[in-house]
Design a protein around this nucleic acid. Sequence first.
DNA 1: ATATAACACTCCCATCGGGAGTATTATTCA
DNA 2: TGAATAATACTCCCGATGGGAGTGTTATAT
Lengths: 205, 205
Amino acid sequence: MQRLTTTSYVILGLLALRRWSTYELAQQMRRTIPYYWPRAESHIYEEPRKLVDHGLATAKREFVGRRPRTVYAITDKGRRALKRWLGKPGRGPLVEFEGLVKVLFAEQGTKEQLLTTLRSIGAEAERTRQHHAALAAELAGTGGPFPERLHVNALVFKFMWEQAEMLARWTAWAEQEVARWPKDVSKPREPKVVTVLREAATFAS
Amino acid sequence: MQRLTTTSYVILGLLALRRWSTYELAQQMRRTIPYYWPRAESHIYEEPRKLVDHGLATAKREFVGRRPRTVYAITDKGRRALKRWLGKPGRGPLVEFEGLVKVLFAEQGTKEQLLTTLRSIGAEAERTRQHHAALAAELAGTGGPFPERLHVNALVFKFMWEQAEMLARWTAWAEQEVARWPKDVSKPREPKVVTVLREAATFAS
DNA sequence: ATATAACACTCCCATCGGGAGTATTATTCA
DNA sequence: TGAATAATACTCCCGATGGGAGTGTTATAT
């Protein structure tokens, strides 16, 4: 029997709200959760089965015409397991950022390449902000599918929003700084950018 | 022959700076890079071999007493490959944040559990800030192992710093908001927290 | 009437996280 | 000086994951 992962508990948490078919769960996982718990859709289908194996959920086979689907529901044991899990501290954010790796080695390329990298990150940040703003508009307007959960959603949303804002600010700042650098980005003299290190260093204990 | 991943290019980028033994590469990958490109140490040993297979690096077997070690160096083909890679846009940040999942389902648990979750995230954010501040002090003081790369390092550092600051701010804010909620966190009436949604919604196009 | 999108999955391979294990050399501290 | 411990230098392996391809059915758009 496979062990339960954070993804299992995400599914269990969703099942605590209502019953879902696996397809609906996969849909829901695509809406907002990928911004802090991204998982491949193909594997979402495995998770509820694990929950059933552990007695945390039940599966019911239903039909839409001749097409079958499986609808899952949480059990009492499932609710208890979820509550226990909520009591254990969760891991802090883990960031994976390929664009930043390209910035790190930027002096091996051209100034144009670096600016292109920064602009593409900036464009993505802008798209994310738009996405989040639209989501906020929907939640603030209709209350979303679970209006009684608006307060916890707002906590989570705030993180997503601040993350997107931070990225946009950082990109704009970096573009501006790099614009000041000479054409050969491997040899800037006295770059102003280094002041960020001195500022951060003052916080060292 | 295995295909090159972002991790391969991280190693290639490090090799562009100087020759390293695999152990040194693994060490270096632990210093700052895990904050934006975390990879398991055990796999770092495989990457340089891939680079050699592709002709982007050469391996040299050396000895420290009777203990052998492999030292890798970049080739001209490797430098060209790195430059080409720098020209292609990199993926934006991907965030994985288990703690936030616990916040999302917090109304299934107790107020105490939620506050504990937030406090543990806050504590981790503080540790990260301390780590970054110490790193900044070192870089600003000695210039670090590659003083000629201080300017690109500063760009990357700024992102790490802002990320840590943002997390600390978010946690402090969330703790304060939750403190205002009633004991039964599933039923706060008119939570002030929802204003963040209204504010963000004004940015929707 | 037909094409396309949404629904409802399954299968599979390469990648990755992470722990355990092996052996040698350097450092610390009693 | 000797023993313990840390650092160096890896290898092996299992289970979790990303992500693409594939199969068939039902609803919607044109």
